[in-house]
Deep mutational scan, measured.
Amino acid sequence: GKMTGIVKWFNADKGFGFITPDDGSKDVFVHFSAIQNDGYKSLDEGQKVSFTIESGAKGPAAGNVTSL
């Protein structure tokens, strides 16, 4: 299901970062391709987001990332 969290950091040049889930679980990798907006796909440190957990090739990653 949907989770919420805070963006820990995001490197716009490399197109990835990490989200710290509100439930205290392990930080989740986020790739820019998972960001659900029409414009420039980037996130800001400290931004609140909702997301799902998808299993990627390198382990769990955030999917369906939407800013709240």
Rank of each mutant, 00 (worst) to 15 (best):
F51M: 03
D27R: 05
G56I: 05
G39I: 09
S55F: 11
E54V: 09
H31M: 04
M3E: 06
S67H: 13
D38W: 07
G1E: 15
G24H: 09
K48A: 11
I6V: 14
E45D: 11
W9S: 04
D38F: 09
F10A: 02
N64H: 10
G15F: 03
T52L: 09
N37Q: 15
K41F: 09
K58R: 15
F18D: 01
F32P: 02
P21I: 05
G46R: 05
P60C: 05
F10D: 00
I6W: 11
F16T: 03
K58S: 14
F16D: 01
F16W: 15
A61W: 14
T52A: 06
G5C: 01
D38A: 11
A62D: 01
P21D: 02
S50Q: 12
D38L: 10
N11A: 09
A57D: 13
A34H: 06
T52V: 12
K58Q: 13
G63I: 12
F16Y: 15
Q36C: 06
I35E: 02
Y40Q: 13
I35T: 03
N64R: 03
G39T: 10
I53M: 11
T20D: 03
T4I: 11
S55K: 14
N11T: 05
K41N: 08
I35S: 03
I19Y: 00
Q47M: 13
A62G: 03
K14I: 11
H31K: 03
L43N: 01
A57S: 13
G15P: 00
D27L: 07
S42D: 08
F16I: 12
N64F: 10
Q47S: 11
G17K: 00
T20E: 09
D44M: 14
F18C: 03
K48C: 07
P21T: 06
F29T: 02
Y40F: 11
G39W: 06
A34L: 03
I19K: 00
N64E: 13
S25N: 10
M3D: 04
F10P: 00
F32Q: 11
A57W: 13
F16M: 08
F32L: 07
K8N: 06
V28H: 02
T20N: 06
G46F: 06
S50M: 12
D27E: 10
S25E: 08
T66S: 11
D44S: 15
L43F: 06
D27H: 04
G63W: 09
G17Y: 02
E54I: 13
G56K: 10
F16R: 02
Q36L: 14
T4Q: 08
D27T: 06
K8P: 01
A12N: 11
P21Q: 04
K14P: 02
S25V: 06
Q36S: 13
N37P: 08
F18Y: 09
Q47G: 07
T52Y: 11
K58Y: 15
F51I: 02
W9F: 10
K26L: 11
D13W: 15
A61Q: 15
M3A: 09
S55I: 14
K26H: 12
V7L: 03
M3G: 05
G17S: 01
N37W: 10
G17W: 01
W9A: 03
T52N: 10
Q47L: 07
W9C: 05
Q47R: 07
A34T: 07
D38M: 10
A62Y: 01
S67F: 14
K48Y: 12
Y40R: 13
N37G: 15
P21A: 04
D44P: 12
G1H: 06
K8W: 03
P21C: 05
I35R: 02
T4E: 07
W9Q: 03
V49R: 00
F10T: 02
G17F: 01
F51G: 00
Q47D: 14
F51C: 02
S33L: 10
D38C: 08
S67C: 08
T52C: 05
T52S: 09
P60V: 13
K26S: 15
G56Q: 13
Q47I: 09
D23M: 06
K26G: 12
K48N: 06
G46P: 01
M3N: 09
E45R: 15
K26Y: 10
P60K: 12
K2C: 06
S42H: 15
K14C: 06
E45M: 15
D22P: 03
W9R: 04
I6F: 11
G56P: 04
K41G: 08
A61M: 15
I6Y: 12
M3K: 12
M3L: 13
L43G: 01
A12Y: 11
F29H: 03
H31Y: 05
S67E: 12
G24I: 04
F51Q: 00
S33T: 12
F18H: 03
I19S: 00
D38S: 10
E54T: 09
S55E: 13
D38Q: 11
N11M: 06
K26D: 12
S33M: 09
K14H: 11
D44K: 15
A62N: 01
V28S: 02
F32M: 13
F10R: 01
T52W: 08
G1T: 10
L68H: 10
I6H: 11
G63E: 11
I53N: 04
I19D: 00
H31W: 04
D27W: 04
I35A: 03
K14G: 06
G15V: 02
F29L: 04
F29V: 03
I19W: 00
G1Q: 08
N11H: 09
N11L: 07
T66N: 11
E54R: 05
G46H: 06
P60D: 10
K14R: 12
A57K: 14
N37M: 15
A34E: 09
V30S: 01
S55G: 12
E45T: 15
G17A: 02
K14N: 05
N37C: 07
Y40E: 13
D22S: 10
T4G: 05
G63H: 12
D22C: 08
I53A: 05
T66Y: 06
G17E: 00
D44H: 15
P60N: 11
F18V: 05
T20G: 05
I6Q: 09
D38P: 14
I6T: 14
P21N: 04
V30P: 00
G39H: 07
H31I: 04
S50H: 09
V28N: 02
G15H: 05
F10W: 13
E54S: 09
D23W: 06
K14D: 04
D23N: 13
Q36G: 10
P21Y: 07
A57V: 13
T52F: 10
G46L: 05
D23Q: 07
D22L: 10
G46T: 03
E45Y: 14
I53Y: 11
G56L: 08
F32S: 11
P21V: 05
G17R: 00
K14W: 11
A34Y: 04
Y40A: 12
A57N: 13
G63Q: 14
D13P: 08
A34D: 09
T20V: 15
F16V: 06
G59Q: 06
S67M: 15
G56Y: 12
H31E: 03
I6P: 01
F29P: 03
V7P: 00
S42W: 13
K26Q: 13
V49W: 01
Q36A: 14
Q47C: 04
T52H: 09
G17P: 00
F16A: 02
S67R: 14
Q36D: 14
G15C: 03
K48W: 09
D22Y: 08
